[in-house]
Amino acid sequence: SPEEIKAKALDLLNKKLHRANKFGQDQADIDSLQRQINRVEKFGVDLNSKLAEELGLV
């Protein structure tokens, strides 16, 4: 269901964000992850996106 997909995506992105902060990645990478999280919260996951591929939806 779209809600489950959204939850999985947010979980994955939050893990990536945590790792980025923990290991001191570029601020641009961290900002990009934050924008992705905001986009998923607002609009859900686009099944044509790279994120959908990472989640194994495509």
Rank of each mutant, 00 (worst) to 15 (best):
residue 29 D to I: 15
residue 4 E to N: 08
residue 31 D to K: 08
residue 56 G to W: 05
residue 6 K to P: 01
residue 7 A to P: 02
residue 18 H to N: 13
residue 16 K to A: 08
residue 31 D to S: 08
residue 24 G to Y: 05
residue 54 E to K: 04
residue 23 F to E: 15
residue 23 F to R: 09
residue 1 S to M: 10
residue 42 K to N: 07
residue 21 N to R: 14
residue 32 S to C: 15
residue 49 S to D: 05
residue 13 L to H: 00
residue 55 L to C: 02
residue 20 A to D: 03
residue 44 G to V: 01
residue 35 R to E: 15
residue 15 K to N: 05
residue 21 N to Q: 15
residue 43 F to S: 04
residue 27 Q to V: 07
residue 33 L to E: 01
residue 23 F to N: 14
residue 50 K to P: 13
residue 32 S to P: 01
residue 22 K to G: 06
residue 21 N to D: 04
residue 29 D to E: 15
residue 20 A to L: 11
residue 11 D to Q: 12
residue 35 R to K: 12
residue 44 G to W: 02
residue 32 S to K: 14
residue 58 V to Q: 09
residue 21 N to H: 14
residue 45 V to T: 01
residue 2 P to M: 14
residue 34 Q to V: 15
residue 9 A to T: 03
residue 2 P to T: 11
residue 13 L to T: 00
residue 30 I to H: 03
residue 2 P to I: 11
residue 48 N to A: 10
residue 48 N to R: 11
residue 31 D to T: 07
residue 40 V to S: 01
residue 8 K to I: 12
residue 7 A to R: 13
residue 56 G to A: 04
residue 34 Q to E: 10
residue 57 L to M: 07
residue 5 I to Y: 11
residue 12 L to N: 03
residue 55 L to T: 02
residue 27 Q to E: 05
residue 47 L to I: 11
residue 31 D to M: 08
residue 37 I to F: 04
residue 1 S to A: 07
residue 51 L to M: 04
residue 28 A to W: 08
residue 21 N to C: 14
residue 27 Q to K: 11
residue 45 V to E: 01
residue 4 E to M: 08
residue 3 E to Q: 08
residue 28 A to E: 12
residue 29 D to P: 02
residue 10 L to W: 01
residue 26 D to M: 08
residue 6 K to F: 03
residue 2 P to E: 11
residue 26 D to R: 07
residue 38 N to W: 14
residue 31 D to H: 05
residue 52 A to S: 05
residue 48 N to P: 04
residue 36 Q to C: 13
residue 46 D to E: 08
residue 37 I to L: 06
residue 55 L to M: 07
residue 34 Q to K: 13
residue 31 D to Q: 09
residue 5 I to N: 09
residue 26 D to C: 10
residue 52 A to G: 04
residue 47 L to G: 04
residue 37 I to S: 01
residue 2 P to K: 11
residue 41 E to R: 12
residue 34 Q to I: 15
residue 6 K to A: 04
residue 16 K to W: 09
residue 32 S to N: 14
residue 36 Q to E: 14
residue 34 Q to T: 11
residue 25 Q to S: 14
residue 35 R to W: 11
residue 4 E to I: 08
residue 53 E to A: 12
residue 15 K to P: 00
residue 37 I to K: 04
residue 16 K to I: 06
residue 14 N to E: 08
residue 21 N to A: 09
residue 57 L to D: 02
residue 14 N to Y: 15
residue 39 R to Q: 14
residue 55 L to P: 00
residue 23 F to C: 15
residue 48 N to E: 06
residue 52 A to Q: 02
residue 13 L to G: 00
residue 35 R to T: 11
residue 48 N to V: 05
